[in-house]
């Protein structure tokens, strides 16, 4: 079937490539191995997954741990992938996203000597976690409240917008905090809320995000906060195109369209992941649910050279006052 020259070239190539060094998982001085399994959207979403990845990279830099990572193709692969990593002797395994909740709990029970962490763990009322599993949860509503304050102070039309990814309670927390924050500044402000979809794919659809954002900008909205993974890359793109403003999420996204990203609600998944790895290394790992809000620096807003011209001193002062008030419990932030 094959023409002989092609076959020869192929065989030669295979033989040659045998000699090439192949990339093993990055070697460190420690023999501690960390495995990370990503959510929908995967590495490169510039948002949620990348934040988790950064936490692992930082830990690898500081402690010299060895790591690998992958993105499951189908749902069943989540559990299988976690098991493969555990079976291959990884010391700590991190599931990124609430979709891992059931799978990681099962696998954690079967591998009691391996440490597990799950970002955005979806806890059931009264549920007990195995002692080798930490569920990292964030009070996204608190950080969203702060960016809501900034949005309301920045808007000139008194119309702001929100683009959510998948229409689920987790994202409702972002929405609720944002709305409460904006109303805290301007009680009568108009807020348009729209979701990209009802499936996990809604977190990975930049074209849809752009379309939804342009629709809102066309109707007089001038600031849009997105909580939609890589779908939000489209929202930020739309802000640049429409000469309006977007608010980034999870990672600091200010750099993605300097001058058009008002700020970013940073969810410090990186810090949480870093800390979980450090705890596991130092033997201070504790299972259970860990809630991270403003007080724990688990969430916040991003201020850097890309948006310093957009955030006035008055805004900084107002938002810092609100932050202090939330931490002190003087402001109650709704989560739904």
């Amino acid at each position: 079937m094959m023409r002989k020259p092609l076959l020869a070239v192929l065989l030669l190539g295979i033989v040659l490539s045998l000699g090439c060094a192949s990339d093993e998982p990055s070697e460190g001085e420690s023999d501690f191995k960390v495995g990370m399994v990503f959510d929908v959207g995967g590495k490169g979403d510039k948002s949620f997954n990348d934040s988790a990845y950064r936490g692992m990279l930082n830990a690898a830099d500081d402690f010299g741990v060895e790591f690998t990572e992958f993105e499951p193709g189908q749902d069943a692969d989540r559990e299988v992938g976690l098991r493969k990593l555990a079976g291959a002797g990884y010391d700590m395994i991190i599931g990124v996203g609430f979709l891992f909740s059931d799978a990681i709990k099962k696998v954690a029970r079967d591998y009691p000597d391996t440490k597990f962490a799950c970002v955005d763990y979806d806890v059931r009322p009264g549920e007990e976690l195995p002692p080798n599993l930490v569920g990292l949860r964030f009070r996204e509503e608190e950080g969203s409240f702060l960016v809501g304050v900034l949005a309301a102070m920045h808007t000139e039309t008194d119309r702001i917008g929100f683009v959510g990814g998948m229409d689920i309670p987790l994202i409702h927390k972002f929405e609720a905090g944002y709305i409460a924050g904006a109303r805290h500044v301007t009680p009568g402000i108009s807020i348009t809320v729209v979701y990209a979809g009802t499936t996990p794919q809604a977190f990975a659809d930049p074209a849809k995000g752009k379309e939804l954002a342009l629709l809102q900008y066309g109707r007089g909205v001038d600031v849009i906060y997105h909580a939609s993974g890589s779908t939000g890359n489209g929202v930020i793109e739309a802000a640049r195109e429409a000469g309006a403003y977007a608010i980034g999420v999870d990672s600091n996204q200010n750099y993605m369209a300097p001058g058009h990203v008002l700020t970013s609600m940073v969810k410090r998944v990186d810090n949480a992941v870093y800390k979980a790895i450090r705890d596991a290394l130092e033997g201070t790992f504790e299972g259970g649910i860990e809630e991270l809000g403003l007080a724990e620096n688990g969430v916040g807003y991003a201020l850097d050279k890309h948006n310093e011209d957009l955030i006035t001193e008055e805004m900084t002062k107002a938002v810092e006052d609100v932050r202090a008030a939330i931490i002190a419990g003087e402001i109650e932030v709704p989560s739904s």
Partner: peptide, 11 residues
């Protein structure tokens, strides 16, 4: 899945 988990070859 094995290739995905244990090599740099993308899915």
């Amino acid at each position: 899945l094995e290739v995905d988990v244990f090599t740099d070859v993308p899915r």
